Simulated assay, not measured.
Amino acid sequence: MVDPTSDLGEDVDEADAPECEHCGAKIVQSPTHRVVTWVEGGAVESTHFCSAECRDAYDQ
């Protein structure tokens, strides 16, 4: 599998692409793609958003 967090989602097949945590849209070659990462229980966790707007709406 190609890393779905690669720059702009290059070379990511839609079947392997991450989904926006807020709206569920597949994120493929999206320059507005946002990834939020944190450490929980000693492991790195992350979640993906298709835009800054979805990222902001998720926090509310």
Results as ranks from 00 to 15, higher is better:
Asp59Tyr: 09
Asp3Leu: 11
Cys54Tyr: 01
Ile27Cys: 10
Gly9Ile: 04
Gln60Thr: 11
Val44His: 07
Glu19Pro: 04
Gly42Arg: 13
Cys20Arg: 02
Cys54Val: 05
Val2Ser: 07
Arg34Cys: 14
Met1Gly: 14
Gly9Met: 01
Asp11Thr: 07
Ser46Glu: 13
Val44Met: 09
Ala25Val: 09
Cys23Asp: 06
Ala57Tyr: 07
Gly24Ala: 14
Leu8Phe: 10
Ser6Glu: 14
Cys20Glu: 01
Ala57Gln: 13
Ile27Val: 15
Val39Met: 14
Gly9Val: 00
Glu19Arg: 03
Val39Ile: 15
Ala57Pro: 05
Cys20Trp: 05
Trp38Ile: 06
Arg34Val: 14
Thr37Lys: 15
Asp11Asn: 13
Gly41Asn: 04
Asp13Lys: 03
Val35Leu: 08
Pro31Ala: 11
Ser30Leu: 04
Glu10Ser: 04
Val39Ala: 15
Glu53Leu: 13
Val39Pro: 10
Ala25Trp: 06
Gln29Arg: 15
Gln60Lys: 11
Thr5Gln: 11
Val2Gln: 11
Ile27Asn: 01
Asp11His: 06
Asp3Trp: 12
Glu40Gly: 08
Asp59Gln: 11
Gln60Trp: 02
Glu45Asp: 09
His22Phe: 09
Ser46Asn: 14
Asp16Gly: 02
Asp13Arg: 00
Glu45Tyr: 06
Phe49Val: 00
Cys50Met: 05
Val28Asp: 05
Pro4His: 07
Asp3Ser: 12
Glu10Lys: 00
Gln60Ser: 12
Asp16Ile: 02
Pro31Trp: 04
Leu8Lys: 09
Thr47Ser: 06
Pro31Glu: 12
Glu14Tyr: 06
His22Leu: 10
Glu21Asn: 03
Ala25Met: 13
Thr47Pro: 00
Asp16Cys: 02
Gly41Trp: 01
Gly9Ser: 04
Glu53Tyr: 07
Val39Gly: 14
Cys23Gln: 05
Ala25Glu: 08
Trp38Pro: 01
Ser46Arg: 12
Pro4Gln: 10
Ala57Ile: 00
Thr5Asp: 15
Asp56Met: 14
Ser51Glu: 05
Gln29Cys: 09
Gly24Leu: 11
Arg34Lys: 15
Glu40Phe: 04
Tyr58Asp: 04
Asp13Val: 05
Ser6Pro: 11
His48Tyr: 00
Ser46Leu: 12
His48Leu: 03
Thr32Gly: 15
Asp7Trp: 13
Val12Tyr: 00
Phe49His: 00
Gln29Glu: 12
Tyr58Ser: 04
Asp13Tyr: 04
Ala43His: 02
Cys50Phe: 00
Ala25Thr: 11
Val28Arg: 03
Asp11Lys: 03
Ala57Met: 10
Ser30Arg: 02
Glu10Met: 07
Ala15Met: 07
Pro18Val: 07
Cys50Tyr: 02
Arg55Asp: 01
Thr47Ile: 11
Ser30Cys: 09
Lys26Arg: 15
Glu53Ala: 14
Pro4Asp: 13
His48Ile: 02
Cys20Gly: 04
His48Val: 01
Asp7Tyr: 12
Thr32Cys: 13
Asp3His: 10
Val12Arg: 00
Ser6Val: 15
Gly24Cys: 12
Glu14Ile: 07
Ala17Gly: 10
Ser6Ile: 15
Val44Glu: 13
Ala43Asp: 10
Ser30Ile: 00
Glu45Asn: 08
Ser6Asp: 15
Asp59Leu: 10
Cys23Ser: 08
Gln29Asp: 08
Val39Lys: 15
Glu40His: 09
Met1Ile: 10
Gly9Asn: 06
Val44Asp: 06
Gly24Val: 12
Val12Lys: 00
Leu8Met: 10
Ala52Asn: 11
Cys20Phe: 01
